[in-house]
Amino acid sequence: MKPAKIDPRVQRTRRLLREALVQLTEERGLDGFSVQELADRATVKRATFYLHYEDKQALLAEYIGELLQELRVAMFDPDGQPPDYDYASGEPHPSFVRLFRHLAERYDVYHALLVRRRVPELSSGMVEIVRQFVAEGLEFAQPDDRLLTARRDVTLKYTEAAYVEVIIWWIERQMPYAEKEIAAQLMDLSIHGPYRELPAWAGSGRGKPGGG
Results as ranks from 00 to 15, higher is better:
156 L>Q: 06
108 D>N: 07
142 Q>L: 10
119 V>A: 00
148 L>Q: 09
156 L>M: 09
151 R>I: 04
151 R>P: 12
180 K>S: 12
104 A>S: 14
181 E>K: 06
157 K>A: 14
168 I>N: 00
119 V>D: 07
185 Q>W: 13
163 Y>T: 09
195 Y>I: 02
165 E>K: 09
197 E>V: 15
188 D>F: 11
159 T>D: 04
193 G>W: 08
131 R>A: 13
139 E>L: 07
141 A>I: 09
115 V>C: 06
139 E>I: 00
192 H>D: 11
157 K>R: 12
110 Y>G: 00
114 L>F: 10
177 Y>F: 13
196 R>M: 08
117 R>N: 04
154 V>G: 02
147 L>A: 13
191 I>R: 14
190 S>Y: 15
104 A>I: 00
192 H>M: 10
172 E>S: 11
142 Q>Y: 05
200 A>D: 14
184 A>C: 01
172 E>Y: 04
133 F>P: 06
102 H>F: 07
146 R>E: 15
195 Y>A: 09
111 H>Q: 09
136 E>P: 00
175 M>I: 07
132 Q>S: 14
157 K>L: 12
195 Y>D: 10
206 R>K: 15
137 G>D: 05
179 E>C: 01
136 E>M: 13
146 R>T: 15
191 I>A: 07
137 G>N: 10
123 S>G: 07
168 I>A: 11
144 D>C: 05
150 A>H: 09
124 S>K: 11
125 G>M: 01
143 P>Q: 02
205 G>K: 04
196 R>F: 09
155 T>E: 14
105 E>S: 01
151 R>G: 12
140 F>N: 07
167 I>Q: 10
182 I>N: 03
154 V>L: 12
186 L>I: 13
155 T>D: 09
198 L>F: 13
200 A>F: 12
116 R>W: 01
124 S>E: 15
133 F>D: 04
171 I>G: 01
205 G>T: 03
163 Y>V: 15
177 Y>S: 07
205 G>Q: 02
